[in-house]
């Protein structure tokens, strides 16, 4: 399959174009997604190509963006709702947690809810406390939601295609820092299955388990560690629900050491969950306690230096792996 290099933003945009062209029941709604083509230009060209019936600028009310998308999904469509950022989607968490996540169950399985809610999250742009949060843990905690965190343009496209075709509500968390990141994406249709982690760097000494932007940082750390003769295996989880624990456990059984890295807060985070499950299922394979490296439990500060201190950086990952491998 021939490859070309495109940005994460354009990869997402391609997925939307292709799926809307393939399936007339797919539609896009959100604040400024039509005329303005999205705050991050992910919906570029959709209005011109598919018209305002299927590409809808909504009033500024996250609860009705999510709620009307839920209603439209029950009504037989496949809405993709954009949230300007996941920070603002917190206004719609009632619709997401109390409704989207539970409707199939509360109907005794008789209703499907093919719905995608997507948008950026994460820090790194000096946008401070209400623009820089990572909300994946809140969503992954709630049964009934699928949670996707792509780190590369190819995964951004392939996972969004799968999300749109899925019959369950999918929470699609893009990282704000990654929109301009470039990567190889195959030409034509790609669908990346949910629940399959990717080993993005092979190694035998330590397993680094991570996702989203932290995958890129872990890869840089792994390259640096190679120079010291430490071979780290880096696993990009790609989807948090469903979670590919088989890949994680297989790697840990090989390396006997594990570090879980996440950008968000430590308490009850994905890193806590993964660490607990490694210890439940691979305790005898471990040569050291599973380590977590997470964001600091503070609201994200604005100041550049403080912000950098608040989330894991490449040298932090390198230092943690060295400690583990020692």
């Amino acid at each position: 399959m021939s490859m070309r290099e495109i940005t994460y933003r354009d990869a997402l945009n391609e997925a939307l174009h292709e799926e809307m062209a393939r399936d007339p029941s797919v539609l896009v709604l959100g604040e400024e997604v039509a005329l303005y083509e999205g705050a991050y230009k992910v919906t570029r060209g959709l209005l011109a190509r598919f018209g305002e019936r299927r590409v809808k600028d909504t009033p500024i009310a996250e609860e009705v963006i999510a709620g009307s998308a839920i209603g439209a999904a029950m009504g037989g469509l496949r809405p993709v709702a954009e949230m300007m950022t996941w920070n603002f989607a917190i206004l719609a968490f009632d619709q997401i947690i109390n409704h989207a996540a539970k409707i199939r169950y509360m109907f005794g399985g008789r209703v499907k809810l093919p719905l995608v809610i997507r948008g950026p999250q994460g820090g790194g742009k000096q946008l401070a406390a209400q623009h820089s949060q990572s909300v994946e843990t809140w969503l992954a905690h709630c049964p009934g939601l699928k949670v996707v965190c792509p780190s590369s343009p190819a995964d951004a496209k392939g996972l969004l295609v799968t999300a749109i075709r899925d019959d369950d509500p999918v929470m699609f968390l893009e990282h704000e820092i990654l929109y301009n990141a470039k990567g190889n994406v195959p030409e034509g249709e790609i669908a990346v299955p949910f629940g399959q982690a990717a080993i993005v760097h092979q190694g035998s000494d330590v397993t680094i388990i991570t996702y989203s932007l932290m995958t890129l940082k872990a890869l840089k750390a792994a390259e640096e560690l190679e120079r010291d003769g430490i071979h780290a295996e880096v696993i990009d989880l790609r989807t948090l629900v469903p979670l590919d624990m088989e890949a994680v456990l297989a790697s840990v059984r090989k390396t006997n050491r594990a570090l879980v890295v996440q950008e968000g807060w430590p308490v009850c985070g994905m890193a806590s969950e993964i660490a607990a499950r490694i210890q439940e299922d691979a305790f005898d394979d471990l040569d050291a306690p599973v380590r977590r490296l997470t964001g600091k439990p503070v609201p994200m500060p604005y100041n550049r230096i403080l912000e950098a201190q608040a989330v894991p950086q490449v040298p932090d990952i390198v230092a943690e792996v060295r400690r583990l491998a020692a």
Binding site: A66, G67, A69, G76, L77, F107
Partner: peptide, 24 residues
């Protein structure tokens, strides 16, 4: 549709279902 224990949140869904009907 199944009733919601919390209040008023069925209406964003209702207007969304109505919107879907028009699109269909």
């Amino acid at each position: 549709v199944s009733m919601s224990s919390c209040i008023a949140n069925q209406l964003p869904q209702a207007v969304g279902a109505a919107w879907a009907a028009r699109i269909r």
